[in-house]
Design a binder for these strands. Structure first.
Length: 434
RNA sequence: GCCGACGUGUUGUAAUUCGGCGAUCAUACGGUCCUGUCACGGCCGUGAUCCGGGUUCAAAUCCCGGCGUCGGCGCCA
């Protein structure tokens, strides 16, 4: 459609062809208004019945909501119109009729359950609020790439079909690969390490990860988007610096570029870029503080994972993004390096929003002998990971990095109730389509 | 994997505690009136208790099974 004018670009005096969806029809008797919606906004089409061809009026007002229409006519300035202009049709074509009964209401007058919305995502995305979320998601991913490039990173894409998992086989989706057993990758972890040791040195990847955990919560997905960063010649502290810079940069971009969307979501007034210097508390402090809150039934001791309720209590107490550093070595995977002066303590860290965990990272074990020991300690066969371990024999620099859940970033940034809100077509324990 | 809650027209809901009126309201849909609506409005109308079994004079409501949805925990991004 070369001669199409978008709703927002219609100027008084011009002859325009507008194509879009019927948002609403208000028939007042002698005059009727049809609101046509496209991606740029809405424009009112005026039918003054005495002045127009009967057949055109009949056709224009007989369509159901969400039908696709193409209207050609003159654009007039009109103070009484919602956008200050309206179009008087000379001709009108019904491009695609919509059924009278819709599975949800795109005008937003009546609510719909999340499952109804996800079953009908196309219609759901005609709602301004849903669209705003995904416009912001797009801006977040753009800002993520820009930020990594500014930091000197090279964008990579690594295989999603793999022969072995990162940390064992239990959480992986098995598939058949030309008759061989294979899996959907749960993380680009091992690949990004191999690339940090390559000539690329500093890499990032934004891509899907697959987890076969049978959870059913507002913060888990079985297919999620992971924002991964890995760099040679940095340590855990520097990796945390990057995570913080990254997060603030993405928030900054949304604040600068997405005011309309934030307004639509009712967030414009409260949206702020998190302040720098996120608190960094050690795991030991974290369990002490969690114990002090009294929410945990049994006092946490060294080596316990932080239960969800403790994580929430901590988040409430700290009330901003914070790092938990120096996790016990025993709860972190083999590729996380231990502190040089204490093998019980690792360099692993998490970055949490008050509501949930966003990032997991750490300095990596780059020494071949210690790495192989780690495999064995975790009950894994190093031989199965030969493609990975052998590269540690050919000049593996110290390196560190992290992975951030893109959907969790959006959920916490936009205060969404459910992580499924942040994915167009979410995959969870029950949902496999659309 | 363990545990819990919920399932009513197109959509969102009320009634479910303590079984009992023609199953509420909004929205959509159909009809009708209306020349400045902007969640347009007025009047009239169509339309539903997830499926199967049981208890009872009587089941949306209680019991059992199934299916579906949502959530809590574990685990994690």
């Amino acid at each position: 459609m070369r001669d199409r004018t978008h709703a927002a670009d219609a100027e008084p005096g011009m002859e325009a062809t507008i194509a879009g969806w019927v948002h609403e029809i208000r028939d007042l008797g002698g005059i009727a208004f049809l609101i046509l919606r496209d991606r740029t906004g809405r424009i009112q089409v005026k039918f003054e019945k005495d002045d127009l061809d009967d057949e055109l009026v009949e056709r224009g007002l007989s369509v159901h909501r969400e039908s696709v229409l193409q209207v050609t006519g003159k654009v007039f300035e009109e103070d009484r119109a919602p956008t200050g202009v309206e179009i008087v049709p000379d001709s009108l074509e019904i491009v695609a009729e919509a059924d009278p009964e819709l599975p949800l209401d795109p005008s937003g007058k009546v609510g719909a359950d999340l499952s109804t919305r996800l079953d009908n995502r196309t219609l759901d995305l005609r709602r301004a609020e849903t669209r705003a979320i995904f416009e912001i998601r797009s801006a977040v991913l753009e800002a993520a790439r820009d930020t990594f490039r500014e930091l000197g990173g090279t964008e990579i894409t690594t295989p999603k079909i793999v022969a072995t998992g990162t940390e064992g086989g239990t959480e992986l989706f098995p598939i058949t690969y030309f008759g061989r057993e294979a899996f959907m990758n749960q993380s680009p972890q091992l690949f990004k390490q191999l690339l940090a040791a390559s000539g690329l040195e500093r890499v990032f990847e934004i891509g899907p990860i697959f987890r076969a955990e049978e959870h059913n919560t507002p913060r888990h997905l079985n297919e999620a988007t992971s924002i991964d960063f890995e760099s040679a010649f940095i340590d855990a502290e520097e990796a945390m610096d990057v995570a913080e810079t990254f997060l603030r940069s993405v928030y900054q971009a949304v604040e600068s570029n997405c005011q309309d969307e934030l307004e639509t979501l009712g967030l414009a007034a409260d949206f702020t870029v998190p302040e720098a210097d996120f608190p960094r508390i050690t795991y030991e402090e974290a369990i002490q503080r969690a114990n002090a809150t009294g929410v945990v039934d049994e006092q946490l001791t060294w080596g316990d994972d932080l239960p969800t309720e403790a994580e929430k209590a901590l988040g409430e107490a700290i009330d901003q993004h914070y790092f938990i550093t120096n996790w016990p070595a025993e709860v972190k995977p083999f590729y996380i390096k231990d502190e040089d002066d204490d093998p019980e303590v690792s360099t692993g860290f998490d970055l949490n929003h008050p509501r949930m965990e966003l990032v997991s990272g750490g300095q990596r074990e780059h020494r071949y002998d210690q790495l192989v020991e780690g495999f064995e300690a975790q009950g894994l066969d190093p031989a199965a990971f030969d493609y990975y371990t052998k590269m540690f024999k050919y000049g593996m620099p110290p390196h560190a990095g992290w992975g951030m859940g893109a959907e969790r970033l959006l959920v916490t940034m936009l205060d969404l109730d459910n992580i499924r809100e942040a994915v167009l077509f979410p995959r969870d324990r029950k949902r496999l389509s659309p």
